[in-house]
């Protein structure tokens, strides 16, 4: 058994788990944060994407022990003061989901993607960046639309703030 301490959504958390426990199971079962999903057993689908130390990663392909001491953000950590994050709002406004199972991973991926590209994205880049996230409902069209809308909004907000 390992005693794991990490920061999740700004709060320091601790828990006991097996050395072999995956980060996603630690987040879901020890911390009760079930917004992060497990969609496959093969590390391909991206439903489990969270941010570790500011970078998107698959929490199903990393041990909780590997993440000990790191700073994790899950889908629950995005909305501030009851207001949806701009990416969440864009997914809602553009109908960027159908069943919603892949959505937490898509949103976390989009936030990371927009940050890395400083809000400057085009359709081809968004589609290439979605390589690690699978959606079986939407055909991706409205997901891409949502991400482009959020990038425009966040890029615009950044310009306005400067």
């Amino acid at each position: 058994m390992a005693k794991i301490t990490m920061t999740v959504n700004g709060r320091q958390v601790s828990g006991q788990c097996d050395d072999r426990t995956l980060l996603v199971h630690f987040i879901r079962e020890n911390l009760g944060l079930t917004g992060t999903h497990v969609g496959c057993d093969t590390s391909q689908c991206g439903a489990c994407v969270v941010h570790m130390d500011g970078r998107s990663m698959k929490s199903c392909s990393t041990l909780a022990a590997q993440a000990a001491g790191s700073d994790i953000t899950t889908i629950e950590g995005l909305a501030a003061n009851g207001e949806l994050h701009p990416v969440q709002a864009a997914f809602k406004a553009n109908h960027g989901l159908q069943c919603g199972f892949c959505t937490p991973g898509m949103v976390m991926t989009a936030v990371d993607m927009i940050r890395r590209h400083s809000g400057h994205l085009d359709e081809a880049t968004v589609r290439a960046e979605l390589e690690g996230n699978i959606c079986r409902c939407t055909g991706y069209h409205n997901i891409v639309k949502s991400i482009l809308a959020a990038a425009a909004e966040m890029g615009g907000a950044r310009v306005a703030a400067e």
């Binding site: 057993d41 392909s61 041990l63």
Partner: peptide, 26 residues
């Protein structure tokens, strides 16, 4: 040895590898 684990962890999940110990060098 375990580095990023992007091959080793998925392989262990499939029970195709079963190291007794992992030494994380990341």
């Amino acid at each position: 040895y375990l580095s990023g684990g992007m091959t080793l962890i998925p392989t262990m999940k499939q029970r195709l590898a079963a190291p007794t110990d992992l030494v994380d060098v990341r």
